[in-house]
Design a protein around this nucleic acid. Sequence first.
DNA 1: CTAACTGCAAAGTGTTTGCACTCTT
DNA 2: AAGAGTGCAAACACTTTGCAGTTAG
Lengths: 148, 148
Amino acid sequence: MKEKAAVATTELRERCRAAGLSFTHQRLVIYQELMAMGDHPAPEDVYERVRRQIPSLSLATVYNNIKIFVEHGLLREVSVHHGSLRLENNLEPHHHLVCTQCKAIEDLSEDDFEPIRLKKSLPKGFSVHRFTVEVLGLCRKCAAANRH
Amino acid sequence: MKEKAAVATTELRERCRAAGLSFTHQRLVIYQELMAMGDHPAPEDVYERVRRQIPSLSLATVYNNIKIFVEHGLLREVSVHHGSLRLENNLEPHHHLVCTQCKAIEDLSEDDFEPIRLKKSLPKGFSVHRFTVEVLGLCRKCAAANRH
DNA sequence: CTAACTGCAAAGTGTTTGCACTCTT
DNA sequence: AAGAGTGCAAACACTTTGCAGTTAG
């Protein structure tokens, strides 16, 4: 996998230049590991792997760079609502309209959508409880606020 | 809205009995406020409102009872992944298969599904960035483990 | 050479826990 | 009464921040 590393290097170097970021060794290794991990890692998981290559690396640096990568669109957060528990009193099947800026959540009724249908089968042994659709974007207020 | 409170009281009393939980004043007020808040509140939001009725109430009691309510299915968490940031390196549109027990996330390709289509229009002014479907359930391992 | 980045430790959040006291059953 | 729940403070886990020293451009 020599090539993969070379590709990641070129890729990150380019992306850093475009974003006005310095290209550092730490940043490269964090990026490489992140891109190689397919399982939606938490910062600690990344830290653990990067450490094996740069034992002196600090967890804060991992957090800093993850944040920077997310801000510059090299990476995304799985959930808009990590950080604080949000509660749901509506136990009926339904979906969500989520504002990625103010984090507001609005319910969408199940029959606002055409039925969600799988074309292929899911991995063997997975037992499905429910489906939920998240419609992500900006609510009216935030969209307006962003137009200064 | 006198009736609504009475309904909630009866409802919670019944549910507590069924679950073997004590029925307390604090628990009732927390439950009532939770059920009255349509906007997917965080524990702090609930605390703030319950406090107006029971100034001596502790935030820990709110957390405790929310946890108990979730465990007994009176309430649900919006996201399985609050608590720790989880990262996504796949920026292509795709969906997720999520194990609610071990929190594992697997990607599902966009074309594993029939196209997601809205029947009705969304609230005025909401600007959509993307849709994502979460298929929630138990992965093979967790499903097996649960069968003792 | 300057601005940006790193490492460390300290400070911040959000959440849980241990314990003495009180209330429900 | 006995067990469950409450309030408080301390403990925890996860994340951010301030600062002195280092490195990239």
